[in-house]
Design a protein around this nucleic acid. Structure first.
Length: 775
DNA sequence: GATCCATTTGTTTTT
DNA sequence: CAAATGGATC
């Protein structure tokens, strides 16, 4: 026990955050240490030498990290720029920055070296680009560009793309990079798995191409800094002495390159503090090595190991259920989490007929909770795979239940955003061939394959960028008049926009460019239902550019950060995958889809065997431990796989949950659905007067077919929507509206805040007015 | 060179 | 069952 500076029992309640008492004390002594338990405090105060903090779920890991940084700064051990702090996601970095600011009063200038491995990698590379064969303004390729590049290489090498897909090669190369292997270093056997031994040469050629394009891929952001350190002692030396203190969050998820990188910078005796939980290692498929955490004290001799085992998050039952489950894993460091919280409610397990009913049942439970005053913000649905999300979205839209998707189909991945970005990239760096290629003929300008091939040939011949090759081509007679004129005017456009970049704000230029290029017009002319949404996204993109200093700064941000937090504020249920749930917590958590094959996922089992199963189990552990007060597990007896209905086998994890902490819930819905009527105890509240007005019926009509497996009954259940007293709507009949999912339409009927809208492309739907915008 | 239709293909997790 | 690719046709 540490010496009692202020004699308070360890169990003393933490002061109310932000309370008067706390703020008063903050003005006097370093109050940031208050409320830490002895282990946490030790983890904060052991600043010198290597430290490994084994922090179980909910043991205050983030708090320790932020406090530790605050402590280092407050005691004058280092300046902010001398601290390297690595987080796993950009979101975590943002959060940590805020929390440190709050701890030490926000007067410290932002820490320049706080971020993900990738973003720190970019920073280092920009500084020393020449040393690894790049220019300072290199571009970062996304997966899409990467694959297109590899496709070109494969066809140049005359390799059948059908037999050896570029995707596979991309995964392979990524794997090598994650292991810190340059082309020369990959083992013979590895090189042989692709195209009969062409793997090494292709990897080598790919790297050479990247250098010519002045580009890096994601893997390079880790591998190239490592190479830089290994080959340039002076640079390494510089970074070694710069970073007085180093902190790494989620250490269990680091891969080999990241490890090697850390080893180099921290040496064996540096002030390196790694925080992690071997039971939460869920990124093995991405090259993460749990081994890194398991052998920390061998890599860093004399390392202090601190265990945080007191859980502050979950109730007794939840913690016990999770602990019992994870105990089935072998090869773990082993921690015994305990809580002083009450036992609470057992984890519930419910069995439903199929995924539609799963969504229905969960939706209903949420509405019930909401009526009891439960905040939607404190509810999350965590699933194994993102395709499970759709069913819930559909259900929630009909229910009018506000939800938010976290980490879903990412903003930057959408085609229209990529296209727009490609325009910006060409303007920003004329030698960005991949961007050029992407948009030469988007929108259609009559510059098809033939023309592009010609440009390509010239570019390769003279080793010049495609834009230059294109301008040569325009001056020649090789193209037919039509494409020639078209290409010429495109190049003129590029030149003009580039010029305007110096006079206009980049956001304005982007809007101008999208209009003048005909790109906006292309989507306006598009009659598909998602075209309006895409135009919205483009607007959003332009809007988000305003926050950046320069075009180059914006481009870098997008390639690294990727999540555009499109202000989804308000009280909403969160939907996300188990992977993106790591580090979060909610009062109530729903865990659907606990069936063998889905969870644990078949592929994890096939590819990784027992290791795969253990990782899946850790994923389950992560899921359960997100819950503070209540965890609901669901399994469906039938699920559609590959489009076919299949009956399922309950997840083996269900049997591994300790019986004392689990209750099997009688949903009654499997039995109840057979009767159809009387399914819900709540539908008497305000049933729809007319069965033909129900969303289920409407949807069945819109689709022109019933996709319900159980005839008759299901549509009735679909109709048991609880009409909530949402009040009157401000939308009028006949008004033109816009909906994120369904596009444009006109209001045909109103019932409280629930409107029936005739969508131009999606047909009639009942939606809640909060999902609509006026147009 | 573009468009339409058929066939094929694959559906885990992400910086 | 969907999306994405490839081939045939205009």
């Amino acid at each position: 026990m540490s010496q009692p500076v202020r004699p308070a029992p360890p169990s003393a309640p933490a002061p109310k955050p932000g309370g008067i008492a706390e703020r008063a004390r903050a003005a006097a002594a370093p109050s940031y240490l208050d409320g830490l338990n002895p282990e946490q405090r030790r983890a904060v105060e052991t600043t010198e030498g290597p430290v490994l903090v084994l922090a179980g779920a909910g043991t205050g890991k983030t708090r320790v990290l932020t406090t530790r940084i605050a402590h280092i700064l407050a005691t004058g051990r280092a300046r902010p720029s001398q601290i390297l702090a690595v987080t796993f996601t950009n979101k975590a970095a943002r959060e940590m920055r805020e929390r440190i600011g709050r701890l030490i009063g926000g007067s410290v200038e932002g820490m320049p070296w706080l971020g993900t491995f990738h973003s720190i990698g970019v920073k280092i590379l920009r500084r020393h680009a020449e040393l690894v064969g790049l220019r300072r303004d290199f571009t970062i390729l996304d997966t899409d560009d990467q694959i297109r590049l590899l496709k070109q290489l494969l066809s140049a090498a005359n390799i059948d793309e059908k037999r050896w897909p570029a995707r596979q090669l991309a995964i392979l190369i990524d794997g090598w990079k994650n292991k810190g292997l340059t082309p020369e270093k990959i083992p013979e056997g590895d090189a042989f798995v692709f195209a009969n031994g062409e793997g090494r040469r292709l990897y080598h050629d790919y790297q050479a191409r990247l250098k010519i394009l002045n580009a890096v891929d994601f893997g390079d952001l880790l591998l190239e800094p490592l190479r830089l350190f290994q080959e340039n002692a002076d640079v390494l030396d510089d970074f070694q002495s710069r970073f007085r203190y180093m902190l790494v969050d989620e250490y269990q998820d680091t891969n080999v390159v990241q490890y090697l990188w850390l080893r180099l910078i921290a040496r064996a005796d540096g002030n390196l503090c790694c925080v992690g939980d071997d039971d939460q290692s869920i990124y093995g498929w991405r090259g993460a090595e749990v081994d890194n955490i398991l052998r920390f004290d061998k890599d860093f001799p004399g390392a202090v190991v601190i265990r945080l085992e007191r859980n502050y998050r979950s109730t007794g039952h939840i913690l016990a259920a999770a602990s019992g489950l994870i105990a089935h894993n072998e090869g773990r460091l082993g921690k015994t989490l305990h809580t002083e919280d009450e036992a609470g409610e057992p984890v519930s397990v419910a069995c439903v007929w199929d995924s539609a009913e799963e969504a229905r049942a969960i939706g209903e439970e949420i509405e019930q909770a909401q009526r009891r005053g439960h905040k939607l913000d404190e509810i999350a649905i965590l699933m194994r795979a993102s395709f499970q999300m759709r069913e819930f979205e559909e259900r929630f839209v009909t229910l009018g239940l506000p939800y938010r998707v976290i980490g879903g189909p990412r903003f930057y991945e959408r085609a229209e955003i990529r296209d727009a970005m490609a325009y910006l990239r060409v303007i920003n760096s004329p030698s960005d061939d991949l961007a050029f290629e992407r948009i030469v003929n988007t929108p259609r300008r009559g510059l098809g394959d033939a023309s592009v091939q010609l440009i390509h040939a010239i570019a390769r011949d003279r080793s010049i960028p495609m834009t230059q090759a294109a301008s040569l081509l325009v001056d020649s007679e090789e193209l037919k008049p039509k494409p020639r004129a078209s290409l010429s005017s495109l190049l003129e456009d590029f030149a003009r926009w580039r010029e305007e970049l110096s006079t206009m704000k980049h956001a304005d230029l982007a809007a101008l460019m999208l209009d003048e290029s005909g790109y906006t017009a292309m989507w306006q002319a598009d009659r598909s239902p998602d075209a309006p949404g895409r135009l919205e996204n483009l607007k959003e993109l332009v809007r988000s550019m305003e926050a950046f200093e320069s075009l180059a700064g914006f481009l870098e941000h997008v390639s690294l950060v990727m999540d555009a937090d499109a202000g989804a504020d308000g009280d909403r249920v969160s939907l996300m995958t188990l992977h993106s749930a790591k580090g979060l917590e909610f009062d109530t958590v729903f865990l659907p889809g606990w069936e063998d094959g889905l969870f644990p996922h078949q592929r994890a089992l096939d590819d990784q065997g027992r290791a795969g199963l253990e990782e899946e189990r850790r994923l389950a552990y992560v899921g359960i431990t997100r819950a503070k007060k209540k965890a609901h597990i669901y399994m469906a007896t039938n699920r559609r796989i590959h489009g076919l209905w299949q009956s399922t086998v309950p997840s083996r994890f269900l049997d591994e949950l300790p019986v004392d902490h689990v209750e099997v819930e009688e949903t009654g819905s499997v039995a109840g659905s057979r009767g159809g009527y009387g399914y819900s105890r709540f539908d008497t509240a305000e049933p729809f007067a007319n069965t033909y007005e129900t969303p289920g019926w409407k949807r069945a009509q819109a689709r022109g077919k019933t996709d319900f497996t159980r005839r008759g009954a299901a549509p009735m259940i679909e109709g048991t929507v609880i009409a909530r007293s949402g009040g009157e709507t401000s939308f009028g009949i006949g008004e033109r509206v816009f909906h994120q999912k369904f596009g444009y339409g006109r209001v045909v009927a109103a019932d409280g805040n629930k409107l029936t809208v005739d969508f131009e492309h999606a047909g009639q739907k009942r939606v809640v007015d909060s999902f609509l915008e006026r147009h």
